[in-house]
Design a protein around this nucleic acid. Structure first.
Lengths: 131, 131
DNA sequence: GATGGTGCTTCCATCTACTGGAAGGTCAAG
DNA sequence: CTTGACCTTCCAGTAGATGGAAGCACCATC
């Protein structure tokens, strides 16, 4: 299977698939004309990667998760630790974003949004943090 | 005032302040020895930038917000539009993260986390999306 | 066999917002 | 005069792709 077909089937852009090969996440074969040739196992890995990336795992996490996936003697604790760490990061990010959202939504709701210059959003941004 | 003092006062790393000058967000003066010399207006701008960045505005948004801030004949509608657009992006990101979090938390809670290889997290990642 | 269109290849640059580090000049204290 | 804390510039690297150029490969048609 050529990269175009794989891209359609996996939902990943061809560019991304080449990139994943570049960084050693997959190693498709090559046919005589130099084209990449993807096996079912490559497709499978790409699906795994796509799913893990969709859950927000970093590329390095994905690499480790794939290694664990292929290791029949893995301990599920190792997988769980990666996932739990990631969950913590997501929670931290969520808390940060929620804080931003609250402040910003408040400011937006206070701004008239007309053609006059007075603006509570700018006023807030210009606030000296010491006061 | 030298960059070290400004860094302490603004809470921004000196590196970041130099970077902000590099991309034209501030233009401190220079003293005879080549050191940057910051005026109150520079400090004020850096505080504005720090606050805007803390609210998640992109550098380009910050640039536009600063321009509006300095434009006495601005319309608050222009500020509000930037902030509302940003709020929408935050909401989109929040929704995405919450979805990730829900899926991930569920998987983590289902994983025994022991020394056996069976792992619902890996099982989920390996799921063929067509089924 | 020439041509055209699509698909594949590599390589290099670009994006965001910094951050790290090297090499070297400056300044105040002792 | 030396030491140490500052300051300077410049270059490289981070994450995870993405855009684009230049150039083969392949297939269908005329």
């Amino acid at each position: 299977m050529n990269i175009g077909d794989v891209a359609r089937r996996s939902g990943l852009p061809a560019k991304t698939i080449r990139y994943y090969e570049d960084i050693g996440l997959i190693t498709p074969l090559r046919s005589a004309n130099g084209y990449r040739t993807f096996r079912d196992s490559d497709l499978h890995k790409l699906a795994f990667l796509g799913r893990a990336r969709a859950l927000g795992f970093s590329i390095e996490d994905c690499r480790n998760l794939m290694t664990l996936y292929e290791d029949q003697s893995r301990a599920s604790a190792d997988v769980k630790r990666i996932a739990s760490d990631h969950l913590e990061k997501i929670d931290a990010k969520l808390a940060e974003l929620q804080q931003m959202r609250a402040t910003l939504a408040n400011l937006v709701s206070c701004c008239a949004g007309d053609n006059r210059p007075d603006c509570p959003i700018l006023a807030d941004l210009a606030t000296d943090p010491e006061h």
